[in-house]
Design a protein around this nucleic acid. Structure first.
Length: 172
DNA sequence: ACGATGATGAAC
DNA sequence: TTCATCATCGTA
């Protein structure tokens, strides 16, 4: 049994969605083939005050998807070569997203997008089967005690308050 | 430890 | 229009 996650799942507080994504499956259809992998690591970027978030300096062309409806993708290029896959969460107008940092067997957000062949084509598109990139519940139960939380990676510029927040969640 | 590699946003 | 900065990775 499996269930494709829809906006009712993503339209919740950012940290709750981040926790909830662990154990869910990132799914990609290319032609007839579908690849799936369990999400094992995520990071939350929560609201306009979060100094580590692209939205901390207001709305721009790039970060516009973060202000849009929950359950849509926010995909952007970093370091001139790596795509980052984020799912938008929370209410419209409130900029928040969860970065998918790792799936089973693949660690690192750039490796995830490389493996799943995710790029700007998905930016602002809904996570849905029709789009070719979506997220499924497949019956994996994650115990609260199996979720580790720690500081987010690569965001020291955000200052001590925001860089020390334990907004990174992972299994193991 | 550091270079790759280019879009972004802010300053000028 | 220029410039520093980046939600990183692979090689050392």
């Amino acid at each position: 049994m499996s269930r494709i996650l829809e906006s009712r799942f993503f339209n919740r507080p950012t940290l709750a969605v981040a926790h909830g994504l662990l154990g869910k499956y990132l799914c990609r259809r290319r032609g007839r083939r579908i690849i799936r992998a369990m999400i094992t690591e995520v990071e939350a970027y929560d609201g306009p005050r979060d100094k580590a978030s692209h939205a901390s300096r207001g709305r721009t062309v790039r970060n516009t998807p973060m202000f849009g409806p929950a359950g849509h993708w926010y995909v952007y290029l970093t370091y001139g070569m790596h795509w980052m896959a984020n799912i938008v969460v929370g209410k419209r107008g409130y900029p928040a997203a969860v970065l998918i940092r790792g799936v089973e067997g693949i660690n690192g957000p750039a490796r995830v997008t490389k493996y799943f062949k995710i790029d700007k084509r998905f930016n602002s598109k809904p996570a849905a089967r029709q789009t070719g990139l979506w997220i499924e519940e497949r019956g994996v139960r994650i115990k609260r005690s199996d979720i580790k939380h720690s500081a987010r990676i690569g965001i020291a510029y955000a200052g001590p308050v925001w860089s020390n927040r334990r907004y990174r969640f992972h299994l193991n």
